[in-house]
Design a protein around this nucleic acid. Structure first.
Length: 255
DNA sequence: AACTCGGGGGA
DNA sequence: TCCCCAGAGTT
């Protein structure tokens, strides 16, 4: 782990870099929890480039939780058509109806986390970005960055590994500017600390990165996924005489 | 812990 | 083709 002073330097370097070099993305022009929420749900397992046009259309048609709560389902799904994971859209409306009932967007972590379709990641993102609450986000990008900075051997595919890195994330988090810090970590993972060929030469925190120091960037994050066995059919035939194989042929693929 | 949900981009 | 992506819910 880094010393307290090193942590301060790390945070400052990351925030300075993010302030200067962040991409201009539509949801970064607002802190409105409703808009941030919509963007975060759309971004679940979906690339930024794919989300942008949907984000604009969706907010134009459903500018607040009241209009979303009252939307006909067909119209809602039409707005979502092509994004995939349609349960996300249905959960959006369920949550919007809860907000309409309550009269406001929930303003604390546990209430946000309790909404349908919102898990640990999204609750931390909305809490930190829109409400300045000190909750660290953990997505694929943050796992990768933290794993490399600390050359952490935890397996991010396991629940234990995720819990372990979650503790580190809370320690590293800049609690004075959690929203900016969280976005900075994700932006770093998305644009510099890439899965393959990380751009360490231009990385603002390479000075505090153990993987960079030891040249082991490609060894992290440790992700050991137990792959399910794949069932496949093959055709095998041969010519045999007196217990000896005279000729054989095995197709690589089923006919 | 494993599985499912969608569609698209990149290796 | 396979893997991965600003994950969450169910079993």
């Amino acid at each position: 782990m880094l010393s307290a002073e090193q942590l301060r330097q790390f945070r400052r370097a990351l925030l300075e870099w993010f302030t200067m070099r962040q991409r201009d993305l539509p949801w970064r022009h607002t802190r409105d929890p409703y808009a941030v929420w919509i963007s975060e749900i759309m971004l679940q397992q979906t690339r930024v480039a794919a989300v942008i046009p949907y984000y604009h259309r969706f907010l134009a048609r459903f500018p607040d939780f009241k209009s979303l709560a009252e939307a006909p389902e067909q119209e809602l799904l039409a707005c979502w058509s092509g994004l995939g994971y349609y349960q996300r859209a249905r959960n959006l409306q369920k949550a919007a109806r809860q907000m309409k009932q309550a009269g406001a967007f929930p303003d604390n972590y546990s209430a946000i986390r309790a909404l349908p379709g919102i898990g640990d990641y999204t609750a931390a993102a909305i809490s930190s970005i829109s409400f300045h609450l000190p909750h660290a986000v953990l997505d694929g990008n943050v796992f990768r960055v933290l794993s490399r900075v600390f050359t952490d051997p935890a397996n991010i595919a396991s629940a234990a590994g995720k819990r372990h890195l979650s503790g580190i994330a809370e320690t590293v988090l800049d609690k004075a500017q959690p929203g900016m810090f969280n976005q900075g970590m994700m932006e770093l993972g998305a644009t510099v600390c890439l899965p393959k060929n990380p751009q360490c030469v231009i990385c603002p925190v390479s000075e505090w990165c153990r993987a960079r120091q030891s040249g082991t960037q490609s060894d992290f994050p440790v992700k050991i996924v137990s792959r399910k066995s794949v069932q496949e059919k093959r055709i095998l035939f041969w010519v045999e005489r007196d217990g000896r194989i005279l000729a054989w042929n095995a197709r690589q693929h089923p006919a």
